[in-house]
């Protein structure tokens, strides 16, 4: 058995588990994780809307990062939740990215929300799509002047980004803006852990679209994740045992 095959078996098990979980009715029996960071983010978003301050959602610098696949896709998958919160507000949301494909897909998500919900504020001026620079550092150079003192309400980071994110965070913090960070490279997670209270690291990074909505869909995805996590831990422990026993 090769490691590639082990990987395929793992992917297959995950797919089968997700499919099986469709037929399970949870009815609040499966506990949804309490994540204060997500509650803080939603509160900060609402407060920013009420006070008319700017909201930034950054989608990262790469759609398909080599080392962290899934982060770009995850950044796009959280967008509908942000857009639904914005439906009654007259502008102020900026979706920033350092990757052209992320910007294009974000625009498609915004337009679909507009088309399906007939909410003109989500179109054009409502949710602005901005590409501040095509590389991480040029993005930083382009973004920092935009986070001006009068408009910094909240900043939410998703997708892939590096330790330069500390500069964005610092700019918003100095203006008393709220910050939420989820994702980023390993270095970015370490750096943001130092300075951001509401930060999600590791597998919690992918919790955002499910955790605040305790419905069946959220429960089934969390159940799958928990089963796989347990299988992974057991596999690692068995591997360590076999290594110590001289079998591997």
């Amino acid at each position: 058995m090769t490691w590639t095959l082990v990987g395929w078996v793992f992917i297959g098990c995950a797919a089968v588990l997700l499919l099986i979980s469709i037929f399970i009715r949870f009815e609040n029996r499966y506990p949804i994780r309490q994540m204060p960071a997500i509650a803080h983010l939603r509160k900060a978003q609402s407060a920013s809307m009420e006070t008319g301050r700017g909201r930034w959602v950054l989608l990262g610098d790469r759609f398909i990062p080599q080392a962290y696949p899934g982060l770009g896709l995850h950044a796009l998958s959280v967008l509908p939740m942000f857009l639904s919160m914005e439906s009654g507000v007259d502008g102020g949301l900026t979706l920033g990215s350092a990757d052209g494909s992320l910007a294009v897909f974000a625009r498609q998500v915004v337009q679909n929300n507009y088309r399906d919900g007939f909410s003109p504020v989500l179109h054009q001026a409502g949710a602005q799509i901005a590409l501040y620079g095509p590389t991480p550092l040029s993005f930083t150079a382009g973004l920092l002047p935009e986070l001006s003192p009068l408009t910094s309400g909240s900043l939410a980071l998703f997708g892939h980004y590096g330790p330069e994110s500390l500069l964005w965070v610092d700019a918003v913090q100095r203006r008393h803006g709220a910050i939420f960070a989820s994702g980023g490279s390993l270095a970015a997670q370490a750096v943001l852990f130092l300075s951001v209270r509401d930060v999600l690291i590791g597998e919690a990074t992918f919790a955002y679209p499910q955790a605040p909505a305790p419905d069946n869909r959220a429960a089934r995805q969390l159940l799958t994740e928990d089963v796989l996590r347990l299988a992974l831990i057991l596999g690692l422990l068995i591997g360590v045992g076999l290594k110590l026993g001289g079998v591997l």
Partner: peptide, 19 residues
Amino acid sequence: GILLGMALGGLLVGLRVLL
């Protein structure tokens, strides 16, 4: 450990979109 967790989350995001 963190990378394993992120890989697990990434796998599930991919599968959720795929399915």
